Amino acid sequence: MLKILGVVFVMFSVLPFAARADHRGIILIHAGYGTPGKFVLQGRVLEGEGIRAADKDLGRFANVVDSFNTLETDELKGVGVEVEIDGRSFASRTDDDGVWRIESQDLLSPLPTGALPITVRATGETGYVIADAHGVVHIFGDEPGIAVISDFDDTVANSGVTDKKRLIARTLTKNAAQMEVVAGASVAFRHAMQAGARGVFYVSGSPQNLHERITEFLRIQQMPPGPILLKNFGEDPLTKHVEYKVERITHLMNLLPNLSFILVGDSGEKDPEIYRIVAERYPRRVIGIVIRRVNDADNTDSRLFGMTALDDYTGDPEVLAKLINKVRMK
């Protein structure tokens, strides 16, 4: 998906879209996670007011227009940002891609654990009317636990990565309410949480412009909410998908040293190879790898050796919960 959407993104970025009216801007909150002593929080500030809400009855043309506006964004550079969390304030400023990021280290007063509410506001004179944004940062305690790291395309959403024409069509002509969930995914992931998973991280090579669409899809499908880590085409390499994803997962493993992980992906791209690299680096912390077999992909036993392979999650909706319970019973 990454290569195709990268080309689409570049195409849209040079199209003569009209500027949003009334000089309005919007703050987006992306990944937010950490421990009581340190956390990472990131988002963007863009022109406009965002796209319309997902609607299962929306037509193809309207979806294409919304997709254009999603992939071609006008970033607001140099905007001061203030984040309030647990009665404390942290400051940042947007870069050339409109991205703001706070990476707090060694907090003198630890944060409480759980999904902590946050408020993000623009500071200083921006020339735009920008409303405050509200979200959460997921703070994981220091006690040992298990979490899930999952891919998105063809792992929880039917994207058709191996069929590039179908992939482009689905990306451009469907909104979050029309996207298809992989059969049984919602139940399997919810059962993982019920079995004691501390959280779910969604790590994908899709562009960060799709963050709101993915967030809405997860909400509609009643998937567990969690940090969504996506690619910044202005900073991350466009084609080095394996390196990018290994780096993102390694970052999580290092930031959250007391958590072990189940890695969930699909055979359509490079998830088996990526997860094998991670498991070799952290053999005691990867408790299982679950791969969804995708049609027209390499599903050979040699490639998926040592992994739990399935066509979808309906055959064993407890597949993730069983891995968690197996560890907890030791």
Results as ranks from 00 to 15, higher is better:
Val148Pro: 00
Asp163His: 15
Ala157Pro: 12
Gly160Val: 13
Trp100Met: 00
Thr119Ile: 15
Val137Gly: 08
Asp142Trp: 06
Arg166Gln: 07
Thr119Met: 10
Ser92Glu: 04
Val120Thr: 04
Gly80Asp: 08
Pro112Tyr: 01
Gly127Trp: 05
Arg101Gln: 13
Gly127Ala: 13
Val83Asp: 00
Ala131Ile: 10
Asp96Gln: 09
Thr126Phe: 10
Ser104Asp: 11
Ile146Met: 02
Ile130Thr: 09
Leu167Glu: 07
Val129Cys: 06
Glu84Met: 15
Arg101Met: 07
Leu108Trp: 04
Ala115Tyr: 09
Ile130Phe: 15
Pro112Ala: 01
His138Ile: 01
Val99Pro: 01
Asp96Tyr: 08
Ala115Pro: 03
Leu108Ile: 09
Val79Leu: 06
Gly114Lys: 04
Phe90Gln: 02
Gly78Met: 10
Val99Asn: 04
Ile102Asp: 02
Gly78Ser: 06
Val136Ser: 12
Asp96Lys: 13
Ile149Pro: 06
Pro112Glu: 04
Asp106Trp: 05
Val99Cys: 05
Val83Trp: 08
Arg121Thr: 14
Ser109Arg: 10
Thr119Phe: 08
Ser104Cys: 09
Leu167Arg: 03
Arg166Gly: 11
Glu84Cys: 08
Ile130Lys: 00
Lys164Asp: 06
Lys77Cys: 01
Glu125Asp: 14
Lys77Thr: 10
Ile85Leu: 15
Glu82Val: 09
Lys164Glu: 10
Thr119Cys: 08
Gly114Tyr: 09
Lys164Val: 13
Ile130Asp: 04
Asp151His: 08
Thr123Met: 09
Leu111Phe: 12
Asp151Phe: 09
His138Lys: 14
Ile118Val: 13
Thr113Ile: 13
Ala91Gly: 02
Glu103Arg: 09
Val156His: 12
